[in-house]
Amino acid sequence: MKRRRRFHIQPKHLFLILLAICVLLIASTSYNTFMTHSIQGGFSTVLLPFQKGMNRLGGLVYGKIGSIKELYGVMEENQKLQEEIGELRRENTRYQLQLKELATYKELLKITDEYPDYDMVGAHIISKNSGNWFSTFKIDKGSRDGFSVGMNILADGGLAGIITSVEAHTSTVTSIIDDGRSVAAMAASSGAPCMVTGNRLLLQEGKLDVTHIDKDDDIDLSYKIVTSNTSSEYLPGLLIGYISDIDKDTNNLTKTGKLVPAVNFSRLDTVMVITTLKRTEG
């Protein structure tokens, strides 16, 4: 006969055992990345199809909520718009001319924003780290698609993050807004170096820290900040964002500021992965 109570373990002993396992895991994974990757790879492969389904569901729910909200808004606005139509018709002709002008400008912008030297592959975001503390997410392509650790991620034409671990069919991306993650950067116009660092508290305002600016360097409000040539992980010349605040430090030697990233991180859906890696040696 099979006995159900083969062994009985006290809760506090189990607690100590699990605690020991945790400590061991933390210790071993912070020294040995191979183990981390094998554990992560196993879990990812199993859960991938479910996640894709859930994402679609999430999008659907959001779409429904969005459309109901929109309906109310539209009904209210309809009345106002009826009155405005007459006025708008007159202005329409004028705007059409301006629109044509805008199209030309956009065409010009596109050329400067492109990065022609780099090979890029698109990928979908399948899961975001729900914890409210760190900013990482998963994309639906991995080492089988030729991805590897250290590849840069673009979205909306700006730098979004970097691949920090790769499994067979997925990869984990740490975004540049992750607390404590730094990018060596420079001002696009003057070449003055600085350091862009993620800060969880500033993220509420949608901004990042900019530090290590020499007090005489030419960096000021609304300057365009791009990745620097000296960065060990990021390819040079990728757009990060624009300076929004700048102040002299109390030590009177350096300046610090804030930066508004070019990427809208709350609405990320698809990203471009640059398969060209930054070469630091050879």
Binding site: I21, C22, I39, N129, T172
Partner: peptide, 17 residues
Amino acid sequence: DAFFGGSVGFYAMIYMA
């Protein structure tokens, strides 16, 4: 941890406690 963590075991410890 396995999905997003830098070092495996960090969240496991907190949730377990």
